[in-house]
Each structure stands twice: as C-alpha cells, then as structure tokens.
Measured scan of single mutants.
Amino acid sequence: KEMRNAYWEIALLPNLNNQQKRAFIRSLYDDPSQSANLLAEAKKLNDAQA
C-alpha cells in the first residue's frame, strides 16, 4: 500500500518531467522498501524545479 501511494504521489508531481517520474517509479519497483525515501527525494526535486 505504501508503494502504491508513493507511486501516485510521484506520478502526480507537477514539476517533474516524464523521464524523471519514470526513473523514480522504476526505483520504487526495484526496492519497494525505499518508498518513503524515494517519495521524499521526488518531492525535493519537484520543489527545486518549481
């Protein structure tokens, strides 16, 4: 469930391009235990690109 939530949050971040989203989501599938960390990194990048 945590992975699914992280997937959708990443997919809906407005300032990431599709390539960036795909990279984060690929990492999510590679290591679901890192969901919270990956989401935090994606949000950080999203904010930096705002």
Results as ranks from 00 to 15, higher is better:
Lys1Met: 09
Lys1Cys: 05
Lys1Val: 10
Glu2Met: 04
Glu2Asn: 08
Glu2Cys: 04
Met3Thr: 13
Met3His: 08
Arg4Asp: 13
Arg4Trp: 04
Arg4Pro: 08
Arg4Phe: 13
Arg4Ile: 14
Asn5Cys: 08
Asn5Arg: 12
Asn5Gly: 12
Asn5Met: 07
Asn5Glu: 15
Ala6His: 09
Ala6Asn: 06
Ala6Met: 08
Ala6Phe: 10
Ala6Ile: 10
Tyr7Val: 05
Tyr7Ser: 09
Tyr7Leu: 13
Trp8Lys: 15
Trp8Ala: 07
Trp8Gln: 08
Trp8His: 09
Trp8Val: 11
Trp8Gly: 04
Trp8Met: 13
Glu9Gln: 12
Glu9Asn: 12
Glu9Phe: 10
Glu9Ile: 13
Glu9Ser: 13
Ile10Lys: 00
Ile10Glu: 00
Ile10Tyr: 00
Ile10Gly: 00
Ile10Asn: 00
Ala11Glu: 06
Ala11Met: 09
Ala11Asn: 15
Ala11Asp: 04
Ala11Val: 12
Leu12Lys: 15
Leu12Cys: 06
Leu13Ile: 01
Leu13Thr: 01
Pro14Asn: 07
Pro14Gly: 07
Pro14Lys: 08
Pro14Gln: 09
Pro14Ser: 09
Pro14Ile: 08
Pro14Asp: 06
Asn15Tyr: 15
Asn15Val: 02
Asn15Gln: 05
Asn15Cys: 03
Asn15Thr: 04
Leu16Thr: 00
Leu16Asp: 00
Leu16Pro: 00
Leu16Asn: 00
Leu16Cys: 01
Leu16Gly: 00
Asn17Pro: 02
Asn17Ile: 04
Asn17Met: 05
Asn18Phe: 07
Asn18Leu: 14
Asn18Pro: 10
Asn18Gly: 11
Gln19Lys: 09
Gln19His: 10
Gln19Ala: 14
Gln19Pro: 07
Gln19Cys: 15
Gln20Trp: 02
Gln20Tyr: 02
Gln20His: 02
Gln20Lys: 02
Gln20Met: 04
Gln20Ala: 03
Lys21Gln: 02
Lys21Ile: 07
Lys21Tyr: 02
Lys21Asn: 01
Lys21Asp: 00
Lys21Phe: 03
Arg22Leu: 13
Ala23Arg: 14
Ala23Leu: 13
Ala23Ser: 14
Ala23Trp: 12
Ala23Val: 06
Phe24Met: 04
Phe24Ser: 01
Phe24Asn: 00
Phe24Ile: 05
Phe24Cys: 02
Phe24Val: 02
Ile25Ser: 03
Ile25Pro: 00
Ile25Tyr: 09
Arg26Glu: 10
Arg26Pro: 00
Arg26Asn: 04
Arg26Met: 12
Ser27Ala: 10
Ser27Thr: 11
Ser27Met: 14
Leu28Arg: 01
Leu28Pro: 00
Leu28Asn: 01
Leu28Lys: 00
Tyr29Cys: 04
Tyr29Asn: 08
Tyr29Glu: 05
Tyr29Met: 11
Tyr29Trp: 04
Tyr29Leu: 07
Tyr29Arg: 07
Tyr29Ser: 06
Asp30Phe: 14
Asp30Ala: 14
Asp30Met: 15
Asp30Arg: 14
Asp30Thr: 13
Asp30Asn: 15
Asp31Arg: 08
Asp31Tyr: 10
Asp31Ala: 03
Asp31Lys: 14
Asp31Thr: 04
Asp31Asn: 13
Asp31Ser: 07
Pro32Ala: 07
Pro32Phe: 12
Pro32Asn: 04
Pro32Thr: 03
Pro32Asp: 03
Pro32Gly: 04
Pro32Glu: 04
Pro32Ile: 07
Ser33Gly: 12
Ser33Glu: 05
Ser33Lys: 12
Ser33Phe: 08
Gln34Ala: 08
Gln34Gly: 05
Gln34Asp: 07
Gln34Pro: 01
Ser35Trp: 07
Ser35Asp: 03
Ser35Tyr: 14
Ser35Asn: 04
Ser35Cys: 04
Ser35Met: 07
Ala36Tyr: 13
Ala36Cys: 04
Asn37Thr: 06
Asn37Gln: 11
Asn37Gly: 06
Asn37Phe: 11
Asn37Pro: 02
Asn37Lys: 14
Leu38Arg: 05
Leu38Gln: 04
Leu38Pro: 01
Leu38Cys: 04
Leu39Gln: 03
Leu39His: 02
Leu39Val: 14
Ala40Met: 14
Ala40Thr: 12
Ala40Asp: 12
Glu41Leu: 11
Glu41Val: 09
Glu41Thr: 06
Glu41Asp: 09
Ala42Gln: 00
Ala42Thr: 01
Ala42Leu: 02
Ala42Ile: 02
Ala42Trp: 01
Ala42Pro: 00
Ala42His: 00
Lys43Ser: 05
Lys43Arg: 15
Lys43Cys: 03
Lys43Gly: 01
Lys43Asn: 10
Lys43Ile: 07
Lys43Trp: 09
Lys43Ala: 03
Lys44Tyr: 08
Lys44Ala: 04
Leu45Ile: 12
Leu45Val: 12
Leu45Lys: 07
Leu45Gly: 01
Asn46Phe: 01
Asn46Gln: 02
Asn46Arg: 01
Asn46Ser: 03
Asn46Ile: 01
Asn46Cys: 02
Asn46Gly: 02
Asn46Ala: 05
Asn46Thr: 01
Asp47Met: 10
Asp47Glu: 13
Asp47Gly: 10
Asp47Ala: 15
Asp47Arg: 11
Asp47Thr: 11
Ala48Phe: 15
Ala48Val: 11
Ala48Asn: 13
Ala48Arg: 09
Gln49Ala: 12
Gln49His: 07
Gln49Pro: 04
Gln49Gly: 05
Gln49Thr: 07
Ala50His: 12
Ala50Tyr: 12
Ala50Phe: 11
Ala50Cys: 04
Ala50Thr: 07
Ala50Trp: 09
Ala50Glu: 14
